[in-house]
């Protein structure tokens, strides 16, 4: 999640205080990614170091106003113009679990798939209820931004269900697995406790 670019995009609309940036960031993402004020200021100081923002004056309580620099504006334009790479995502636990389920004897892969699909559909129902409770065509800019974030979660959840459907069909089509290879360093005729002698 690029807090750095999110804050720069907000500053491209005009100078802001740190606490304003935090509030606006959370409003436009529907509080999906809550920020603490420390994150905001540490990000701002890195942006300042890289000369993408400057501090301009302070109010009576000593709070600084931040303004984007031309280099910062170029950075934001570049960010909007560049697609996000998928390679940065952490390893997918579900994919690993299914891969293990296929190769582990005694595991009913269909059952693993079905349990996950029911859980994922529940999540999808919860997200859809949140969406259904809001107006079909939100008038407010902030509500529209939130709708897009919510739908991003809905479509990702849907993609997981489709992938699970595909896994189920794939497993049903393929023949039962051949016997697994014996564990390393454990000859079949020797009890495990004796192999170290």
């Amino acid at each position: 999640m690029s807090i750095r670019h999110g804050l720069l995009a907000l500053l491209s609309q005009g100078p802001r205080y740190g606490y304003q940036l935090r509030a606006e960031f959370e409003a436009s993402t529907g509080s999906s990614w809550p920020l603490n004020i420390g994150q905001v200021y540490s990000t701002l100081s890195r942006l300042e170091r890289d000369e993408l923002v400057t501090r301009v004056g302070a109010d009576d309580e000593g709070r600084f106003v931040y303004r984007i620099t031309p280099a910062g504006e170029a950075d934001v334009r570049e960010w909007f113009a560049t697609p996000v790479a998928r390679a940065d995502r952490p390893r997918d636990e579900l994919a690993i679990k299914l891969a293990m389920a296929v190769t582990t004897p005694g595991v009913d892969v269909r059952q693993v798939v079905q349990a996950q699909r029911t859980a994922t559909l529940r999540t999808l129902q919860d997200l859809t209820r949140v969406k259904a409770a809001a107006p079909a065509d939100p008038a407010d800019q902030g509500d529209r931004a939130w709708r897009l974030v919510l739908e991003s979660m809905i479509f990702q959840t849907e993609a997981e269900v489709r992938w699970l459907d595909h896994c189920e069909a794939f497993v049903a089509r393929t023949a039962p697995a051949a016997p697994a290879a014996p564990p390393a360093d454990a000859p079949l005729d020797a009890p495990i406790g004796e192999t170290s002698r």
Binding site: Q114, L121, L124, Q125, T128, I154, F155, V161
Partner: peptide, 14 residues
Amino acid sequence: HESRHAAWADRVVF
């Protein structure tokens, strides 16, 4: 067959 549409339901049966 669309889970995104099924999710509008109160209950989904498989």
